[in-house]
Design a protein around this nucleic acid. Sequence first.
DNA 1: TAGATTGTTAATCGATTAACAATC
DNA 2: TAGATTGTTAATCGATTAACAATC
Lengths: 217, 217
Amino acid sequence: MYKENNKTITAQALRRMPYYIQQLRILQSEKIETVSAPKIAERLNLNEVQVRKDFAAVSSTKGKPKAGFSISELLANMEELLGYHNSDEAIIVGAGSLAQAIISYEGFQNYGIKIVTAFDVNPQCIGTEINGIKVLTADKISDLCRRMKIHIGIITAPAHQAQVVCDQLVAGGVLAIWNFAPVHLSVPEHILVQNENLAASLAVLSKQLKQAMKKLN
Amino acid sequence: MYKENNKTITAQALRRMPYYIQQLRILQSEKIETVSAPKIAERLNLNEVQVRKDFAAVSSTKGKPKAGFSISELLANMEELLGYHNSDEAIIVGAGSLAQAIISYEGFQNYGIKIVTAFDVNPQCIGTEINGIKVLTADKISDLCRRMKIHIGIITAPAHQAQVVCDQLVAGGVLAIWNFAPVHLSVPEHILVQNENLAASLAVLSKQLKQAMKKLN
DNA sequence: TAGATTGTTAATCGATTAACAATC
DNA sequence: TAGATTGTTAATCGATTAACAATC
């Protein structure tokens, strides 16, 4: 849980923020100026109390009974909270198609990080560029992280290389790791790891589907 | 929550399964035959009771006090549970770099789905192949899903096309949607949606990092 | 005013963790 | 036997949801 202006925001609430931002932008493009929590809740299939609490937690001003919240103010508060306008620098290790997808993902610069360099072990791609981002040899990971004071490392390397890459990032002083390899990473206690495990997500989906189909029969 | 052999497995437990499988395979490759819950818990930084309960929930036989569980049996039970050996067919819509990454992701065929066709609106990529998978024109989504009785649709299209694609999938009889577009999808009640929202994950990571760095000062 | 909406306290729900007897 | 480990019940924790008075 994180504090901002004496208010507490949970990780789950943070995960909802991009969805709020998306909806608020739609309303804003329709020249609407205020919105109520129940309205957004309905559009996103969420509980209205939850939305109200989330809004209260990020909003710099109070909502107005009957009227709701100012859309432009909510948007500014949420974007500020997520750091959309002052991006942290990051590097990405493993310059394959996943790296390319992330680098070109709907303009990630708007999402609070800026990828400055890519790394790979394959001599064939070293020296090339992905969307304007240079691919360097993996030997230089620690060195570059340290020199550029990089705080975020993204691992898109294959599973069997993920732990080695992780260790190099940690050695380079990286504090947060966004891990796309489907393996558990061992890290010192102070290092943050966010796992993006597609195998795990798929496990949930395909099991749920099987259950649903059983019910249909 | 899902039942299997009178035992209940939660979605969170399912998400832990691929990590168990990874660790069990490592031990198996070292010719070790049994393992205890506390041992796996330690390797994965989990609570030992949680691991024991997860094992009990999937295992076809009971663990033995002092000895623990049979690794090969646990592996077989988990792989069966996740459907690793009888893959469901799926299609993917939006044949960009993210689609390519998913298609080539560590051999996804082992993870319970088999992607049979890709779709795109861009005439340039229609007719090409991605790792042996043909790219067809998006007009044919509903039709093909219906004819081939496809149950899983993967959306890797841009945000502004995601809802349209989703509607086509639903019209084609798809029951489960794996959505990589960073938007909320409106679907009929019986349709399963698993959101893979990178913007949301990044929001958590970058906020946590900011908090951690505040503490360091 | 009436009613939609807010903010807040209390109740519920689900998942994790602790405690502990049973057992190989 | 002693001790590691299991299985299970109870306690804890955190997040979501319900209830309701306050207010524009």
